[in-house]
Design a protein around this nucleic acid. Structure first.
Lengths: 338, 338
DNA sequence: TGGGTCTAGAAAAACGTTTTTCTGACCCAG
DNA sequence: CTGGGTCAGAAAAACGTTTTTCTAGACCCA
């Protein structure tokens, strides 16, 4: 019996109906002040009869709190998701949603889009920002709005900003050591041109690794939005120009998948002629042919840590400004296994 | 220069500062009524100087709109996500987030949790509900709140409710025909005890299929929260009691993965002795050993259709009440390939 | 010159709660 | 029999916008 005479039913309607003050209705329904049992019963009955639903927006007006946080990723979906739309961002999203719900916050998913949503108008109290680049547009908008933000992966140039450190230098070292140990003597590196900490750190680590061994560095920086096709095309060119390359470390999984295609097209066997490894152990590293050696980044733990950092920041309490991701570990698959 | 003297800066502060009415400040900032150019400039300057940020909650008070929709799944995460937290729900989430953002709505991720969030207090205008069971708790709460809801997968017993029909009978028929064509003569079925439309329809289709061929039906209904371990255990028992079984159709991917484990433990080869197929072609069907034959459910299209249904419902406009998912197609993998 | 229209801004209402403050009745101890 | 305390409810303030209504002056034209 949802008495729907046009307008929404408010607390005022109940008050009028019972000749009682609105505040009394509020207290009766919420129970935060004692109200005569009998009156409470009548209020509740009337509320039910009229089909009253508390307006959650009005409710939040006093506190000004949205009780929600946003999860932002500026990476094009070709990277974060691709055709199957699964991957890095969604793996973080799942755990972050759970963890924030535990704290009474909902999680809003802000997908990377050309027409970026007007950040000004999003109903959120804070944000998680996935792998921001040096000049990240979301980072600027969020900072301009003055929202608390936790970065998942440091933002280059913003060493002060609260972040979960993904420790990409260590990840890169792990992968390079594995490739070398698997027999590689000339390792090429493919990163993205976007200036994310993971790419910058990996490049530095690669330079160090190459220098230490007297190996001439061979490094491609590709545009993330090029996706798998670009990875394939550029790898083909690389293999043609540098036939001595016997391993490729592709930081972005779609580039790695493209590299596999290129290897097949160039008649190279994997891992016999060419070893290929990537960073994020997601659905794409599994689906590649052959499945790719990759790194377990412990994204659920990372997501949980990020939410735990963000919550006190929202409350205005002191919060740690830097947390380190757990130690990474290698998952060796056919793309490098001897 | 975020002049932060305790309180938040409001439109009133700007008005006071300039000896001007609050409404004028509002109009100057929003531009929806003409305000003298010079004054606009002064208002904007003062706003910037004081560090004014519009309060999005207050802004929404008049409209009462949250500008957000919720994505709910009552399936335990063991099913929807599992250890890697990816899968059905997240695949839908990615596309739904994109599609709703396009309409100016954000998407809230409501993960399945024991302590269900108080649905009453969620700041949403509508909801998508993934594969609700006959007695789905979220469905009840959402309906009680009077929110528009689009079900992704019909809800048994709620044929009237707006939904995207996942056409599970056809999916089941596709899988059964494939198993038979791959040489199976005795196909066992594993569904979940939760009464979701996909399970009910599959069971019906299986019964029809078996009857038509004079094949004695063999059907297990498992508790979804049991996950892969339960799938393994029950498959082991099944194989012991019915050694003649030469194919298993497991509707839930974790059960299928468990069935693979069981087959190995029982010394059966896949697909030689035993063919295994599942429904959702997600990361788990790929990661199984061997990779599983599964169905492409076109979840991105499904998610888009669901959002498109929901939007007019929120606006109070007439909306279609039933949409059919695209035709399903089979992805044949090593678990059934001859 | 009087009545109409237009203008830019002021003023007030509205959105729907929650929280704080006020009030009158009652009770009890001093 | 009075002053203070407790009680349940009323009243009002508060939250921060947006929207509607009002107003005083400028302008115009018959």
């Amino acid at each position: 019996m949802t008495a729907n005479r046009g307008r929404k039913v408010t607390i005022l309607d109940i008050a009028r109906e019972l000749n009682v003050a609105p505040s009394t209705v509020s207290n009766a329904l919420s129970g935060r002040r004692y109200v005569d049992e009998d009156l409470v019963a009548r209020v509740k009955a009337t509320a039910a009869r009229l089909g009253y639903r508390a307006n959650p927006v009005a409710r939040r007006l006093r506190s000004g709190r949205a009780s929600a946080i946003g999860l932002f990723s500026a990476m094009p979906f070709a990277i974060t998701g691709g055709s199957s739309r699964l991957g890095f961002m969604m793996e973080i999203a799942a755990t972050a949603a759970e963890e924030s719900m535990r704290a009474g916050l909902s999680l809003m998913l802000i997908p990377p889009m050309e027409a970026s949503p007007s950040v000004e108008d999003l109903l959120i109290d804070g944000a998680l920002l996935i792998e921001p680049a040096r000049d990240d547009p979301f980072a600027q908008l969020l900072d301009a709005r003055g929202l608390p933000v936790v970065r998942i992966g440091r933002q280059p140039g913003r060493d002060d900003a609260p972040a979960v450190d993904l420790r990409s230098a260590e990840t890169a070292a792990l992968l390079l050591a594995h490739l070398e140990q698997a027999g590689a003597r000339r390792i090429a590196l493919i990163t993205a041109s976007a200036r994310r900490a993971s790419h910058e750190e990996t490049e530095a680590e690669y330079a160090r690794f190459a220098a230490a061994r007297g190996m001439a560095p061979l490094h491609l920086q590709l545009d993330e939005s090029g996706g798998q096709a670009l990875g394939r095309a550029e790898t083909l060119r690389l293999l043609a120009e540098h036939p001595e390359v016997d391993a490729i470390l592709a930081m972005v999984d779609v580039f790695a998948a493209g590299a596999c295609e290129a290897a097949h097209a160039a008649g190279r066997t994997i891992p016999g002629d060419l070893r290929i490894a990537t960073r994020y152990d997601g659905p794409r590293s599994l689906a590649a042919d052959p499945p790719l050696t990759a790194v377990n980044l412990s994204l659920p733990e990372v997501a949980r840590a990020a939410v735990k950092m963000l919550i006190p920041m929202i409350e205005g309490e002191p919060a740690p400004t830097r947390v380190r991701a757990p130690d990474a570990s290698l998952t060796v698959r056919a793309s490098t296994a001897a």
